[in-house]
Design a protein around this nucleic acid. Structure first.
Length: 526
DNA sequence: CGGTCAAATATCTTTCGGCC
DNA sequence: GGCCGAAAGATATTTGACCG
């Protein structure tokens, strides 16, 4: 078993990454795929899984206007087809227009590498004769097409040339969790090996700790790229906004934040206005730019005076503000309401961020964070540091109250008997872990401030786990089998985040990568 | 048009831990 | 060891979009 005792424990240290690369150095990997996705990495350091490529294809995250097959024919996708959960091609009943052929209907097979077509033996299987387009993320054999079992030519599309965002951004945006639903979880090699070797709780805990640190480091890396184009406060604002999109609205929230940078907001909303006026203007600015005001949608009459007054106020303010902004607002179609509980509709979250911004001096959440850090650094007791840091930072999210939105879920929605928070504890925790810690970590390192890093790490490793998700449940089953064992060991967000990291790196393909998993290999190593 | 579903907060219950 | 307050855990409640 790999010794994990010698590494530093009070800061974010890339122990996990070193372990992973030690197992995969040299390229002589074991397993069925002679060349795994580990070795060809363009534009991302993550391991790209076929499931992700399927999601890219199904979600059509492509520059659709200029698609060409690998032999140069113009291609227009009418329908990406429907998921096929049984054997055979990945998507059924797709439709597209192909130059020289016209309308084509048929099935689609998706791979990470174009050469996977032959490696998976599809050119010898008649079940793949219905495939009319082969879609690969990367074209590694530089061919222009594939052949099926009857020798017919299948046109091929290479996605990497047409992605509508950086690959690592897509990795963040695409929900790879949903496919886990309903599948039964098989124990991993890790679980079997743990029983064989009687791996103790401390060892596995430590491993998860380091994996959890790696997750923060990777998030930090992502934000570091954003920082090339913006200031800390702008990046923090964008990241918080993205986080407010929960799962389905990350994209429009992020777009809103980049179309409406803090600088522009400051230009439109004077610092010296009264608190109330600032709040109202901020709401109308953000909601207006989001395209979510009632006037921008279907206007319904109401006999509720309070609602009518509020809407009137906000829309009036927007009509004035709109003149000073020369960028187009988003529209209702940019937002997704599917599968979102009314309490978390985008309108409410936008109202929330508007209230937060208008209450921060100079609209800077970042500056507020720094002031909290400064205060906390001087405390002696560790417990007190942890408590105050979390409480003070989260108070700006939890403490929001709004005369309208605290009592309503929607425009014209019925008035709630009791006020409901615009952002709750869970969201605040999420923002704290996924956004604030990574960004402050970058800041600490840029300023060589190890004290801040230590405070962040201290808080991180003492923070209780967030509620379970499909991924944490899956991983709990996969590694520990019994939920009570899992619960005992996963006693911090740090370890919980470690589960996500290992999942992303190794388990996403179900059983495929168990033999390459760093957790398993660390156990069997002598 | 009505059943189903989505996920957060509010509230109630149990456990934990510190302290005398 | 027992008491009290705090934290953690479990359960109930909530509205409106979507799909057939």
């Amino acid at each position: 078993m790999l010794c994990l005792n010698k590494n530093p424990i009070d800061c974010f240290f890339p122990v996990y990454k070193e372990m992973v690369s030690s197992f995969h150095a040299g390229g002589n990997d074991i397993g069925m795929n002679s060349r795994s996705s580990l070795h060809v990495l363009e534009g991302t350091e993550r391991l790209i899984k076929e499931e992700l490529v399927r999601c890219i294809w199904f979600g059509q995250h492509l520059k659709r206007a200029c698609l060409c097959t690998d032999n140069g024919s113009r291609l227009e996708i009418l329908s990406p087809g429907w998921w096929n959960s049984e054997g055979g091609p990945d998507f059924k009943h797709a439709e597209f227009l192909l130059e020289g052929k016209g309308l084509v209907k048929g099935d689609i097979e998706v791979h990470v590498f174009s050469s996977d077509w032959i490696r998976h033996q599809h050119h010898k299987q008649s079940t793949y004769d219905t495939v009319c387009l082969h879609v690969a993320l990367w074209n590694d054999n530089h061919g222009a097409y594939m052949k099926n079992h009857r020798g017919q030519t299948i046109p091929q599309l290479t996605l990497s040339k047409y992605l509508d965002a950086e690959l690592d951004e897509l990795v963040e945006l695409i929900d790879v969790e949903s496919y886990l639903k309903g599948k039964k979880v098989n124990p991993g090699y890790c679980q079997t090996e743990m029983e064989n070797q009687k791996v103790n709780d401390q060892w596995i805990g430590r491993f998860l700790d380091y994996a959890g640190d790696e997750r923060i480091l990777q998030k930090a890396k992502r934000y570091e790229r954003w920082l090339e184009k913006g200031t800390f406060e702008q990046v923090l604002y964008e990241a918080v906004m993205e986080s407010l999109g929960y799962k389905n609205n990350k994209e429009p929230f992020f777009t809103l934040a980049s179309r409406l940078p803090l600088e522009d907001i400051r230009y439109v909303i004077p610092e010296d206005a009264s608190a109330q006026k600032k709040k109202k203007n901020m709401q109308s600015l953000l909601l207006g730019m989001a395209g979510l005001l009632p006037q921008q949608r279907n206007k319904k009459p109401t006999d509720d005076k309070e609602t009518a007054n509020y809407i009137n106020d906000i829309e009036h303010a927007w009509n004035e503000i709109q003149k000073k902004i020369n960028r187009d607002p988003l529209t209702k179609n940019d937002w997704s309401y599917a599968g979102i509980r009314p309490a978390n509709f985008p309108e409410r979250r936008i109202a929330a961020i508007a209230n937060i911004l208008s209450e921060c001096s100079s609209l800077s959440i970042f500056r507020y964070l720094l002031s909290v850090l400064e205060k906390v650094e001087n405390y002696q007791e560790e417990r007190k540091i942890i408590k105050r840091l979390v409480e003070d930072i989260q108070s700006i999210f939890l403490g929001i109250s709004d005369s309208y939105w605290s009592y309503h879920y929607t425009w014209y929605g019925k008035k709630l008997a009791k006020p409901v928070k615009l952002l709750g504890k869970e969201r605040a925790s999420n923002i704290f872990i996924n956004v604030i810690i990574p960004i402050l970590l970058i800041y600490a390192r840029k300023h060589s401030n190890t004290k801040i890093e230590k405070v962040l790490h201290l808080t991180y490793r003492n923070y209780t786990p967030l509620p379970d998700t499909s991924v944490t449940k899956f991983m709990g089953n996969r590694i520990f089998g019994q939920p009570n064992v899992s619960k005992k060991i996963i006693n911090s967000v740090r370890r919980q985040q470690g589960l996500y990291q290992i999942f992303k790196d190794f388990c996403e393909n179900d059983n495929m990568s168990c033999n390459k998993c760093a957790l398993y290999l660390s156990m069997v190593k002598d």
